[in-house]
C-alpha cells in the first residue's frame, strides 16, 4: 500500500481518508494516512492471511528458499491495517534477507519468528521496497539481529520525512512508548543497482525512478527467478499513487518486459504470470492519465475531475472508493504542471 508519501505527500489522518485510502499514506505523510476503520474492509477481507484475523501468521514457501506472508486486502485504517502488505524473506547458505517488515512492530516480530522457525541462519539484510508504513514499521523487530537495512537512495530522506507522521498516526503500531528511533531507515542505499549475496544466492536490487513512490526498489532472486515488485505491482487492490503517474506507467512497461518465473506483488496474490496483472494495472493508470489530462485541458476543477475520471475501470478492483479519489487528486496535481 501505499500510501504514504510523506509527502510523499500529504498528511494526515484524517483519517479516514487518507489512510485508508491508501496506503499511501503511509508514507508520506502527509500523505497520509489515515484512517480509521471503516468500511471497505469487507471487500477484501478474507483474502490474504492477515495475522490480525486470528489465523496465526502464515508464511508459504513459494519457491525454494522464498517465503512469503500475504497481507490482507484491508484499508489502511481498518483493524488489521498493520498486516496488509506482502512481506517475507529469502534464505541463502550464509544468511537471510528479509523483504519488507509489515506495518507494525508486532507484525515484524511475527515475521522474525517465522524466520526463526525455518532457519537458524542470521538475518543479514532487511530490505524495504519503499517508504510506506505497511512495509517498514516492522523494521524495529529486527534491530537485535543487527542487519544492514537496505533501500532506495531516496528512502533515507523519505523515512526522515515520514517519521513525524508515523509517530503521530501510527504510534499504536510501534513499541510502547513510541519513539523516533523505532522508525529505522536504511544504512545501505541503492542508487541504481546492487547485488547482495546471501551465500550462493545473489539478490539483485534495482532502484527505480519515481513511480509508485519516489523510493521504489525491486528485488530479484536469480536462483528461482523470483521478482519482488514491491508496490510497483498491485494485484486486486487498486494501485495507490504516491509518486509519479507518468513514471509509474513507464515502470510498468519495463517490468512487463522482464521474464520471471514468479512475481510477488506488494499487495495481492503472487503470480507466475505477472504480465496480465501488469496490463490490468497499466490500464487503470493509463485511464487515470488520459482522463486527468482531458479534464485539465478543458479547464475542469479537481472536484470535477474526481467525478469524471476513471469510472470505467472500476470493475474488479478492491478499495476503489478509498483509493481512487486520492489517485485522481495526485494525478491532477502532477499533470497540472506537465510540460
Amino acid at each position: 500500500m501505499i500510501v504514504l508519501r510523506p509527502r510523499c505527500r500529504r498528511p494526515r489522518r484524517r483519517v479516514p481518508t487518507l489512510l485508508v485510502t491508501t496506503l499511501l499514506a503511509a508514507a508520506a505523510l502527509p500523505c497520509g494516512a489515515g484512517a480509521g476503520a471503516r468500511a471497505g474492509a469487507g471487500q477484501g477481507a478474507g483474502q490474504g492471511q492477515g495475522a490480525g484475523q486470528g489465523q496465526g501468521f502464515l508464511v508459504d514457501e513459494l519457491a525454494p528458499g522464498v517465503y512469503v506472508h500475504r497481507g490482507a486486502q484491508l484499508p489502511l485504517d481498518a483493524p488489521g491495517h498493520d498486516d496488509i502488505a506482502n512481506i517475507g524473506f529469502i534464505v541463502g547458505s550464509r544468511c537471510v534477507a528479509v523483504i519488507d517488515t509489515g506495518g507494525s512492530v508486532r507484525i515484524g516480530l511475527a515475521l522474525r519468528a517465522a524466520v526463526r522457525r525455518r532457519t537458524s541462519l542470521p538475518v543479514c539484510y532487511v530490505i524495504n521496497t519503499h517508504v510506506h508504513v505497511d512495509h517498514v514499521l516492522g523494521n524495529e523487530a529486527f534491530k537485535d539481529d543487527r542487519p544492514s537495512f537496505v533501500g532506495h537512495a531516496a528512502l533515507a530522506q523519505a523515512m526522515v520525512r515520514s517519521r513525524p507522521y508515523f509517530l503521530k498516526e501510527y504510534a499504536q503500531d510501534l513499541d510502547v512508548p513510541a519513539a523516533p528511533e523505532q522508525v529505522i531507515g536504511p544504512d545501505r542505499l541503492v542508487a541504481t543497482e546492487l547485488t547482495l549475496d546471501l551465500g550462493n544466492r545473489p539478490l539483485t536490487l534495482h532502484a527505480w525512478p519515481t513511480a509508485h513512490t519516489d523510493c521504489d526498489l525491486t528485488v530479484y532472486d536469480r536462483k528461482t527467478s523470483t521478482l519482488w515488485t514491491g508496490d510497483l505491482l498491485f494485484i486486486e487492490r487498486l494501485p495507490a499513487l504516491d509518486g509519479s503517474l507518468v513514471g509509474w506507467i513507464a515502470a510498468v512497461d519495463r517490468l512487463a518486459a522482464q521474464r520471471v518465473k514468479l512475481a510477488i506483488p506488494g499487495h495481492g496474490p503472487p503470480t507466475t504470470e505477472p504480465k496480465e496483472p501488469l496490463a490490468r494495472e497499466r490500464s487503470y493508470l493509463e485511464a487515470l492519465l488520459q482522463g486527468v489530462r482531458r479534464e485539465l485541458a478543458a479547464g475542469e476543477s479537481l472536484q470535477d475531475a474526481m467525478l469524471h475520471v476513471g469510472g470505467d475501470e472500476r470493475s474488479g478492483w478492491l478499495l476503489w472508493d478509498e483509493v481512487h479519489p486520492r489517485n485522481v487528486a495526485r494525478a491532477y496535481e502532477e499533470l497540472e504542471w506537465e510540460k
Binding site: R5, P6, R7, C8, R9, R10, P11, R12, R13, R14, V15, P16, T17, L18, A28, L29, P30, C31, G32, R161, P164, Y165, K168, E169, T210, D214, G243, S244, L296, A297, A298, G299, E300, E333, E334, E336, W337
Partner: peptide, 28 residues
C-alpha cells in the same frame, strides 16, 4: 470535515518548477 495534518504536511515531493509560474486554462 474529518481530516488532520493539512497544515503540517511536508511539502510535496512533486513540488518544484518555477516559483510563481501561472497557468491559465479557460473553459471551452
Amino acid at each position: 470535515v474529518k481530516a488532520s495534518g493539512g497544515c503540517s504536511a511536508p511539502p510535496s515531493a512533486a513540488a518544484g518548477g518555477v516559483l510563481g509560474e501561472v497557468r491559465l486554462r479557460p473553459g471551452e
